[in-house]
Design a protein around this nucleic acid. Structure first.
Lengths: 198, 198
DNA sequence: GGCTCTAAGTTTACACTGTCAACCACGCCT
DNA sequence: AGGCGTGGTTGACAGTGTAAACTTAGAGCC
């Protein structure tokens, strides 16, 4: 498990890549707690402090992973949104993509959305906004004004986040049929988003 | 700040109380990170290991705080639910109570709902269910069957959780009017909950 | 009084964590 | 040859939660 395989590691930029690769591997297999600077270093064949030559802090390393996660999530949602078909159906497809991402790439989802702010320096707001293009796409849907669109898009995303977060934390009643719950929640959130203003 | 006031601390059950009190104080003033066994101990005038005489682990201590949080949250929501007035309005009032709790007692909310499962042994499921009486009340609303009610109640709670969690993490666009967003999200979630099945 | 038994706390230690300051080694340039 | 910067390591610091062993105080009983 603590795979101390020592592939002739590179140096300089190569080492940086190796560190990032190892961090990604560990995140995917062991989640956030597996991201220890010392463990990453020993697996990659360098010392813990060498990581600081390429990342200002552990958080900076994690930010790089978060960025990767946003890239994946965004592309999946954009693909759904840019499809053809009725607006509501595309919205739902994007929502399904979001939920699927959260449940399949749980470790990524956690570092992207579930780290408490004091626990980690917040992902830079600027990157976050850029990373959130899909929200803008959401916002452009079925909205009278841009402001109303932003609001509605945000509401959908918060609803989806709550669903995913509680599912991940296993804080949803086990009696419920998972798939049915998800589909119903998506339906509720998306139809509300395209409903006439109240 | 690291108030090493040493009030003639008690012993036995009194010490346990003192520990819990200090933990609560620290949680409220400094959030989750302020909950260090050593800091609590030194503030209360005993050693860190003494805490383990009364709590099996740090998590057990936190569980006690979580229980307090649920008690507060539950009573507030139940008060709203058991009021008089139309169902939808009572539902919204309960939702408002939930959101207000999350935004006012943030530190409590975080340990109750936002700790990642690996980070802390999950709050015992049995306690959690008991702590969640308000969900059952939700479920009893506007539902054809109990199963449908549970599902709808869960969907509302997930939506509210997502809203609160992202607000706390400051991951909601700052341009949005906070109060308006909250009110709209509550409206969307609650009206969907009492809508006819789709 | 003197013995034992027990409960309550403390001391000490272990294995971690992220990170910083000082140090060393090498290749390039003058 | 000498100086310098770049890349990396060593060793340390200040934390963390927690387990094992030790000490101390008090109660019950002969």
């Amino acid at each position: 498990m603590t795979d101390t395989h020592q592939p002739p590691r590179g140096t300089g930029a190569e080492l940086k890549r190796a560190i990032l690769d190892e961090a990604r591997r560990r995140l995917e297999s062991g989640g956030y707690p597996a991201l220890s600077t010392r463990k990453i270093a020993s697996a990659v064949g360098c010392t813990a402090t060498s990581i600081y030559l390429y990342f200002n802090s552990k958080d900076a390393l994690i930010h790089a992973l978060i960025e990767e996660g946003f890239e994946d999530l965004n592309s999946k949602m954009m693909a759904a949104i840019e499809g053809d078909g009725p607006v509501l159906e595309r919205l739902k497809d994007a929502a399904r993509a979001y939920v699927r991402f959260g449940l399949e790439r749980t470790a990524y989802y956690e570092i992207m959305f579930m780290l408490r702010p004091e626990q980690m320096e917040r992902f830079p707001a600027e990157s976050y906004r850029r990373a959130r293009r899909s929200l803008d796409a959401f916002a452009s849907f079925a909205s009278v004004s841009p402001a109303e669109g932003l609001k509605r898009g945000t509401i959908v995303l918060t609803a989806l986040h709550g669903l995913v977060a509680l599912l991940i934390a296993q804080r949803v009643d086990a009696q419920l049929d998972r798939e049915e719950l998800i589909e119903s929640a998506i339906h509720a959130a998306c139809t509300a988003a395209v409903a006439p203003p109240f």
